[in-house]
């Protein structure tokens, strides 16, 4: 492998600083002691973090987002697991059509889905329902879980399942004792990825949330269009912290590079 020259490394340094600059600066500004957006040279303080906890609307949105992400990621795994097993193992008429349907949210802009949900919810008279918000999020994040489940199912060595079967294990035992443990890393990685995607989702949610169900990204967007003060920076820093924590878990469970690059099936 030939090494990079100095120009290549300079280019690389510039790209990395471009990528990191806004995120690092957000985290620094969050610690400012002043009233305006500024780097904490004049003294660091936690006052803007405290300000977040004095805003009950932000706290409420945080709980909404957390609950929403936990529920929709879990529901998504429950739906994607059997579907992934069927798509990964069996050839059957309509398989390609179903596969396309299940992955379609990846090529439909979230904005269009948001508008479509808003219309459907208003026709059905269920606008503002938290349950339907969970369902809406589930649809958007299920393709990510499904891809992970499919990759895991395709990667299973079938011989141990056959061995178990020939030793008299029933289909349920084979699934519980052999198949499930084998795909568990992919499954839990998929859950985590779904959790992060739901927790961060803005564009679709902004159409289907009502004041009672506003999620944290939607609340932040609304706040940032009105005013820019250091509290936004501290909320953002907290968001980065939570996402970072989730990424660490994801890395342990599955390997972050594998998830980000994505193993296409």
């Amino acid at each position: 492998m030939r090494r990079n020259g100095p120009i290549a490394l300079l280019f690389h340094t510039l790209v990395v600083s471009f990528v990191l600059a806004p995120l690092v600066l957000v985290c620094l500004v969050a610690f400012t002691a002043q009233d305006t957006l500024s780097l904490p040279f004049a003294g660091a303080s936690l006052r803007w973090f405290k300000a977040v906890f004095d805003h009950p609307d932000f706290l409420q949105s945080f709980y909404n987002s957390l609950q929403l992400a936990l529920l929709s990621a879990t529901l998504s795994v429950c739906i994607a697991l059997p579907a992934g097993l069927a798509l990964g193992r069996y050839r059957f008429p309509g398989r390609d059509a179903l596969n396309g349907l299940f992955l379609s949210p990846l090529i439909i802009p979230s904005l269009v889905l948001g508008v479509a949900f808003m219309r459907m919810f208003s026709v059905m008279g269920i606008s503002g329902s938290f349950f339907w918000l969970v369902i809406a999020h589930t649809v958007v994040i299920t393709p990510y879980v499904l891809r992970m489940v499919l990759a895991a199912v395709m990667g299973i060595d079938r011989s141990s399942e056959q061995a178990a079967q020939s030793l008299g294990a029933g289909p349920w035992t084979v699934f519980r004792r052999i198949t499930l443990p084998a795909i568990l890393p992919g499954l839990s990685g998929g859950w985590m990825l779904a959790f992060i995607n739901s927790f961060d989702e803005l564009t679709m949610s902004i159409f289907v949330t009502t004041p009672a169900t506003v999620t944290l990204p939607v609340r932040m967007y609304m706040y940032a269009t009105e005013s820019i003060d250091p509290m936004m920076a501290s909320v953002s820093a907290l968001m980065i912290l939570i996402t970072g924590g989730a990424m660490l878990i994801l890395d342990r469970l599955y390997g972050l590079d594998r998830i980000l690059i994505g193993e296409r099936v």
């Binding site: 990191l20 932040m220 940032a224 968001m239 980065i240 980000l260």
Partner: peptide, 8 residues
């Protein structure tokens, strides 16, 4: 950064 919310 893909995983960090676009709002942030």
């Amino acid at each position: 950064p893909l995983l960090v919310s676009v709002v942030v």
